[in-house]
Design a protein around this nucleic acid. Structure first.
Lengths: 200, 200
DNA sequence: GTAAAAACCAAGCAAGCGCTCGTGTTAATT
DNA sequence: AATTAACACGAGCGCTTGCTTGGTTTTTAC
């Protein structure tokens, strides 16, 4: 049900759909608009997706898989220092938020439009991602790097990071890496704070 | 254009609309659904609002006015200690997020569905609110209470707070006041952290 | 008590919606 | 060369949408 038909063509269609869903919102994006942007007629759309909801589900799944893959690989490369791991995870989060921006924005804003079935399926991916974060946050707490309630820290940090899609300008003066570093510096003791703020 | 016709009847209609917009989303909420929930027929709706968009605008404005009023009164009562002011503002933010939850959720998720005119109008309210925050954040930075880039601090903190609408359960063990205190404790030095976490 | 104003209703229009279906048209497999 | 599967098309069905209209009831103001 998940990765059936991951052809390049289908991936491209999902990318296009993600863009339109962001620009117009899911409900205002008609199957005719989707089809036109894909260079086909509306009827042909339903050879690739069973219905409109399935496109939404595919878009969101793309973003979540990307986030998971990136986070896992970042952690694998990060060694075992809690502060490095936390920094790496925040960087990975901002990176996927940026490179798969459309998919993540759709996940954020159109989650409620998913039917129950799709939601159940995607919720497992979200849980896996959040427990990845929880583990790293727990390590940082145990190391005395930050302080606070473990659940609360995770939620506040992920909230602050996710909110960046509403204001972050990739063309601005700040790289995603610097952004991640500054957020963690805010939470940590002065030991973590470096003067390094601008782009290299 | 703003506060014309702030009759109790109209206020009630706006409350009902806010609830439906949260439950179903703006686009999926039909004028017939709105009318039924209000106890009238769909045609009569357009004696109160010029069109569907105007209802959305009214809902969002309600929430923003509430937030502004609450924040201003909280600051007026807070004296001039930066830490008290920051705490008061965070508490006020969570309080309006809770008591006008529907309106704020709509503002969060359906902002993009506003037409250009409404958006221009509401953007001024948002700017006023954010500059209120910016001032208090600046005071806290100057007092050495927290550290980081002034714009970034404001955005991260407001992001973390706004994100609470996605997970906070008012029936849970944590009061909004405790939540605000814990967030600020995360950002501040140990001087600010108190052991006080649970409900009184 | 009456006139003006505000609120409401029943009916329906034009447009747009998601989706289906029967029929080509390729492109790969045998 | 024949078969099959994948992809695309055009037409359109059945339904819902936001909103209008002309006329009636209720409330308000003097």
């Amino acid at each position: 049900m998940t990765l059936v038909n991951a052809s390049p063509r289908r991936k491209e269609l999902i990318r296009i759909a993600a863009r339109l869903f962001v620009e117009e919102g899911f409900d205002r994006t008609t199957v005719r608009m989707l089809a036109q942007a894909m260079g086909i007629k509306s009827g042909s759309l339903f050879h690739h997706f069973s219905d409109k909801q399935a496109i939404l589900c595919a878009v969101i799944e793309t973003g979540m898989q990307h986030a998971l893959t990136l986070a896992r690989s970042a952690l694998a490369d990060a060694g075992c220092s809690p502060s490095v791991r936390l920094d790496a995870l925040a960087r990975a989060h901002l990176e996927t938020l940026l490179t798969e921006r459309n998919a993540h924005v759709v996940a954020l804003y159109e989650w409620r439009r998913l039917d129950a079935g799709s939601r159940d399926h995607l919720i497992h991916l979200r849980d896996a991602y959040e427990s990845l974060w929880q583990k790293v946050v727990d390590e940082a707490l145990e190391a005395g790097l930050i302080r606070g309630d473990r659940l609360l820290v995770r939620r506040f940090v992920l909230g602050a990071l996710n909110w960046t899609v509403r204001w972050y300008d990739p063309a601005g003066p700040r790289s995603p890496e610097a952004l991640a570093r500054e957020l963690i510096a805010m939470l940590s003791g002065p030991a973590f704070a470096t003067g390094h703020v601008g782009r290299p």
